[in-house]
Computed example of a mutant assay.
Amino acid sequence: MCGRYSLAKSKKALEERFNAEMLEPFHPRFNIAPTQLVPVITSDSPMGFSHFYWGITPEFARNKPVSQRFINARAETIRETVSFKNSFRRKRCLVPADGFFEWKKMGKKTKIPYRFTLLDESLFAFAGIWDEYENTEGEVHHTFLIITTAPNGIVNDIHDRMPVILERGAESIWLDPLASEERLESLLKPRSEDDMLCYTVSPLVNQVANDSAAVIRKTLPMDQFGNYTLFG
């Protein structure tokens, strides 16, 4: 799964990279977690950023809070899964990011956090889908999730899934309302390991409240308790 990512770039950098306008205030985010409100670009409004909650509520589970159980969708089954197939057809989005985190298990108690980025640590987009739901007060909220696929070689050593990082040229296809399901599905593949790098970060990332540049700084391998380890 993909349960944490970063968007540690300025509002101006986001607007220039995605050729879209952001009307709401934004500051760099170093530790984005499920249920938080973050910028996306939808197929309905490709020239501007929208702010949606990460964590989709399926159509059959209205009037319930955003659930962390629904933060990702598997690329292999997205066309058939009842909860997601309608959004795959009609409600796709780009999820801007510049990195994501996974934890490598080293025994029963030790987990080492890693950050994955493109080689130049530039902005990219996860493939996402979005939906809307009504809460108990009758308010409509927009939510999104991130599509995951099999890992490439660099991620495979850490985790058995990775988010779909779209090639830049594929982003407009993903937002195209006329694109066929077959064409869209062909985009949901692992990003080449030759395009990526990873490094260990501080266990500060374990706590959602920690949202500073220290979270993404390269560090010696430390477990979730902050103890240095011999593992890289």
Rank of each mutant, 00 (worst) to 15 (best):
H159A: 06
I146V: 15
P34A: 06
T136A: 13
K218V: 15
D131W: 02
L178W: 06
C198E: 05
Y228R: 13
N152T: 10
K109N: 15
R161H: 08
F101Y: 14
P58E: 11
Q68S: 13
W130V: 01
D194A: 14
T136Y: 10
K189S: 09
P203W: 02
K91D: 04
Y199L: 10
S43C: 15
S192G: 12
L178K: 14
T57N: 10
D176E: 09
R191H: 08
F26R: 04
I146R: 00
H27G: 08
P28G: 05
A125L: 05
L145G: 00
E171S: 09
L23G: 13
F26E: 04
V215Y: 02
M222G: 02
T219A: 10
R92N: 05
L14V: 06
L197A: 10
L123I: 10
P163I: 05
W103A: 05
S212E: 14
K12G: 06
G226M: 10
S180I: 08
D223P: 02
I173Y: 00
G107S: 07
T57Q: 11
N227Y: 14
T117S: 09
G138V: 11
N31S: 08
E121K: 14
Y53T: 11
F144L: 04
N31L: 04
L188S: 04
G48N: 06
V95P: 03
R17A: 12
P163Y: 05
L204F: 11
N72G: 05
P163F: 07
L204A: 08
T77C: 09
E185I: 05
T200P: 07
S202D: 15
V164P: 00
A97D: 02
V38F: 10
T117L: 03
G55F: 02
T35F: 04
S50A: 15
P177K: 12
F18Q: 01
G48I: 01
D176A: 05
E185H: 13
I146D: 00
W174V: 03
V82Q: 15
I41W: 00
S87N: 03
T110A: 11
H27S: 15
K108W: 09
F231T: 13
M1V: 10
Q224E: 12
V208W: 10
D160K: 06
K104I: 08
G128R: 02
Q224M: 15
W54R: 02
L119E: 14
M222E: 07
A213P: 03
I173D: 01
E16H: 14
I216N: 01
